[in-house]
Structure formats: structure tokens, C-alpha cells
């Protein structure tokens, strides 16, 4: 719940900017809508094979917090409009679909990608606040040094031009410094909230699975937790299962693991496995004689004197 509150504060900061009059202005619904779409696509594709679903108020609220947190973060780092935004949407949709969003919220690589996109957004906002409407301007050597104003259009090359409308600037212009502080703080709080929420959700599920196992007699429960260690519960698909499927899954896993353990024990006890360690030659024959008795009779071989 506290993680969700943190996500809420982050989303609040990411939804605001400060205009030239020093007043708070919203960042609009376009970027939030696109962010929600990307977050939804990311969550759906990354958890395609997951069977878990929210079962109670806490897990449902946690899932809502995870979705909104992702939507806030994505909308906070996207360029506010134009061609840049759609390129970023594509990149983020692929990145979020590949990451294990359902289990780990955001992987380290995804966080780095989001941080880089936030930096890009801050850069173009800075350029816009300086009334420079391009990502960067490169001066053409020699031409740029000539003092003729009619050459101005070809003295520099503008890369990545955009307009104030695309940036979603307030009418009174953007006060860059306070807006930067709001967005950076919002991003950090949202990402921290998402990570905290994912950790808390994992703990919550582990507690529930542990409680289910503890319904068994204590010695048996201890055995089950040794065969199915807690660190593997997520990978084994126990997280998010409803009570009955959870029990059935634990039964299945126990049957499979115990059977595998029996097979292994049988194999280890068999003398045949020692054959594989026989080095051969003189010492190998002696070794075989000691472990398996007389070798098979070969033609022409002398029998042992009585």
C-alpha cells in the first residue's frame, strides 16, 4: 500500500509542469493515454503465459498500482508529441514486452532505457525553453564563417526539429528548472514505488504459499519446503494461483520432484554406474574384480590353478 502511495506521488509530480507565470499546469491526457496503452501492452505480452490473477483487494490494488505506475513512468519519459513520441512508443512497447514485467516490474535494462528517454525529454524541453526548436544544430564548416546573411539558411543544419505545440508547452512558456525538478522527482518516486510494489507482491505471495504448506503436519511441511525451496516459488508458477490450483500445483511438483529424487537415488545405488568411473587397463581390471567378481571367460584364457 505504501509502495502504491509512492507511485501515486510520483504520478502526481509527473503530471504537472510549471509555466512562465509560475503556475502549475497539467501535462495533458495525450501522453498519459499513450503511456497507459504501452503499459497495458507490455503487461499483457510479458505475462502471456502467467496463470496468476488478483484474488483479493490487496492483490487487485497492487496490480492496479503496478499498471498505473508503469503508465505514469512511460507517459513521463515520452516526448510529448510528434514523430519522436511514436518512435519511443515502439521501442518501449518492445522493451516492456520482453521484460518480465509481471514478476520483476522493471528490469535494470528497462529502467536505464526509461532514464535515457527521460533525459531526452528533458533535453528537448530545455531546448524549447531556450526557444531553440531542434534537438541540435550543427554549423557547416567554412559556410558558417562567411558574413553574408543570405547564406543563413545553409550555414547550419538543424537535426530533429519540433514545435512548441508538439512539446505540449503551456501558453505562458515552460519554467524549465522547477518542471525538471518535478519530473525527475516523479520519475524516481514512481520507479522506486514500482520496485517496492513488486518486492511486496512477491513477499505477499510467498506468505500465502507458506501458509498453505503449513496446513500440512509440521514435519511434512518442512519436507515440502525443502523439496520446493521458497526461492523457486515464483519460477515454479506458484505465485498468483488461487487456493485450489495452488494445492494441485504443489502436489504435482512434489510428485515430480520426489519421483526424480527416487530415480536419482536408484541410479546412484546401482553398481553399473561405477562402470563409468573404471579407468581401464591393469588397475581397471583389478577394480572390476573387486566390485563385480570374475570377468567373463575368454577363449584361450588360462584358468586359475586350484
Amino acid at each position: 500500500m505504501f509502495a502504491c502511495a509512492l507511485i501515486g506521488v510520483g504520478g502526481l509530480l509527473l503530471g504537472l509542469q510549471v509555466d512562465g507565470n509560475g503556475e502549475f499546469v497539467g501535462t495533458g491526457f495525450t501522453s498519459l493515454g499513450v503511456g497507459a496503452l504501452v503499459a497495458l501492452a507490455g503487461i499483457v505480452f510479458s505475462s502471456w503465459h502467467e496463470r496468476g490473477a488478483p484474488r483479493d483487494v490487496i492483490t487487485a490494488f497492487s496490480s492496479l498500482g503496478g499498471f498505473l505506475g508503469l503508465a505514469f513512468v512511460v507517459s513521463g519519459v515520452l516526448a510529448p508529441g510528434g514523430g519522436w513520441m511514436f518512435f519511443e512508443v515502439l521501442v518501449l512497447a518492445v522493451a516492456l514486452s520482453r521484460s518480465e514485467a509481471a514478476r520483476t516490474a522493471l528490469s535494470r535494462g528497462t529502467v536505464i532505457l526509461l532514464a535515457l528517454m527521460l533525459l531526452f525529454r528533458l533535453w528537448i524541453s530545455y531546448q524549447g525553453s531556450q526557444h531553440r526548436w531542434e534537438v541540435m544544430s550543427i554549423e557547416v564548416p567554412i559556410l558558417s564563417s562567411l558574413p553574408f546573411s543570405f547564406l543563413a539558411p545553409i550555414q547550419s543544419v538543424e537535426l530533429g526539429e519540433f514545435t512548441p505545440r508538439e512539446l505540449g508547452f503551456p501558453l505562458a512558456g515552460l519554467a524549465f528548472a522547477p518542471s525538471l525538478a518535478l519530473w525527475a522527482a516523479g520519475f524516481v518516486l514512481s520507479v522506486a514505488g514500482l520496485a517496492w510494489r513488486a518486492h511486496a507482491a512477491r513477499e505477499y505471495e510467498n506468505d500465502r504459499i507458506h501458509a498453505t504448506i503449513c496446513e500440512l503436519p509440521p514435519a511434512l511441511a518442512q519436507l515440502v519446503e525443502r523439496v520446493l525451496p521458497e526461492s523457486q516459488w515464483g519460477e515454479l508458477g506458484l505465485h498468483g494461483l488461487a487456493d485450489r490450483p495452488l494445492r494441485k500445483r504443489i502436489e504435482e511438483l512434489m510428485v515430480a520432484r520426489i519421483a526424480a529424487r527416487h530415480e536419482l537415488d536408484a541410479a546412484l545405488r546401482s553398481r553399473e554406474i561405477l562402470e563409468t568411473t573404471n579407468p581401464g587397463g591393469f588397475s581397471g581390471e583389478i577394480y572390476r574384480a573387486l566390485t563385480q567378481g570374475a570377468p567373463p571367460q575368454a577363449s584361450g584364457a588360462r584358468s586359475e590353478p586350484s
Binding site: M1, F2, C4, A5, I7, G8, V9, G11, L12, L14, G15, L16, D19, N21, E23, F24, V25, G26, T27, G28, F29, L32, V57, F61, L64, G65, L68, F72, P170, L171, A172
Partner: peptide, 21 residues
């Protein structure tokens, strides 16, 4: 905390509608 988070989620969406003067 749950109700605070709910209120914050609502506020996070609502503030985006604030229009500049």
C-alpha cells in the same frame, strides 16, 4: 495507505487537466 494511494491515483490523473492561464 490504501485510501491515500487511491486519492493520489485520482489526483495524478486529475492534475493533468489543469489548464494554463
Amino acid at each position: 495507505a490504501l485510501f491515500a494511494a487511491l486519492a493520489l491515483f485520482g489526483a495524478s490523473v486529475a492534475v493533468r487537466a489543469i489548464d494554463g492561464g
